[in-house]
């Protein structure tokens, strides 16, 4: 990593508690711009928790306390003048279980626009264009162009998850966070979604949580290994899998933890 690398997300001594259980301990990471960063580690080590800090959805639970700093593009997201809708507009999130909204495919894609647009009525032609472009970008247009009025919750899981990615795109986010986006999908759909991630890389900074080693190797440029709420190692993916520096990383990669 050279010195002029641009970092999109940096955290400084981030600690997080659920009630009095500490789920993140002194997390300090720098996540580089425009690449895919994998977040790996055994179940319960705090991957989801860390990811959910970046767009502050963790705060939906009442019992969360956080200390430390998170800077997104240089701006501390815990500053008082940060607006959550704006923050979440810039940082899209894909969840472990596909969670399209129980409205039509079309409305799912334009949901973000409707929510964020100051104008009352966005032109129909404008929205049609956005829908086509977003669905094309996730390779769903050909499958769904005749089903735009269908309820999104009735689609196949793979289509649902791709749709969940597509609906982020009209907002032109800087960052896309993905929490085990393939864990509810079969292997073929997993491959399709992975391919999609690779086409999106470069345009967006992507952070993906996965417990699937092979997936981390296939898609990520850099990898972060977490254990019990702490960052153990953060390097280029090839390095982590070929020459892990931390013996605990080696143990995990070789399958000695769950």
């Amino acid at each position: 990593m050279s010195n002029d690398t641009k970092y999109t997300i940096t955290t400084d001594k981030l600690n997080l508690w659920y009630g009095d259980f500490q789920a993140l301990i002194n997390v300090t990471v720098n996540i580089a711009d425009g690449i895919i960063t994998g977040l790996i580690g055994p179940s319960g080590c705090g991957k989801t928790t860390l990811l959910r800090c970046f767009n502050r959805v963790n705060e939906r639970y009442g019992n969360v306390t956080t200390t430390g700093e998170i800077l997104i593009n240089g701006k501390n997201i815990y500053d008082d003048d940060v607006s959550l809708p704006e923050l979440r507009k810039a940082i899209g999130m894909v969840f472990q279980r596909p969670n399209p909204l129980p409205i039509s495919v079309y409305e799912n894609v334009v949901f973000g626009l409707r929510v964020h647009s100051r104008r009352k009525n966005i032109k129909k032609s404008e929205m049609d264009e956005v829908v086509e472009k977003s669905l094309r970008e996730v390779f769903l247009w050909d499958d769904l162009k005749d089903k735009l009025d269908k309820k999104a919750t009735g689609l196949q899981l793979e289509q649902q998850q791709k749709l969940c990615i597509a609906r982020l795109l009209p907002l032109k986010p800087d960052i896309i966070l993905m929490d085990e986006p393939c864990s509810a999908l079969d292997s073929e759909s997993t491959r399709a979604v992975e391919e999609l991630m690779l086409t999106l890389a470069g345009k967006y900074t992507i952070v993906i949580v996965t417990h699937n080693m092979a997936q981390a190797r296939r898609v990520s440029d850099e990898c972060i290994f977490m254990l019990l709420g702490e960052i153990m190692e953060h390097t280029r993916t090839e390095e982590m899998f070929l020459t892990p520096k931390n013996p605990k990383t080696a143990d995990y990669i070789e399958g000695r933890y769950g």
Binding site: V57, P85, R88, G92, F95, P100, P102, F111, L168, L171
Partner: peptide, 12 residues
Amino acid sequence: SYREAAEALGST
């Protein structure tokens, strides 16, 4: 999950 999805997209 619906609430979470909507809020993560930035809705109030």
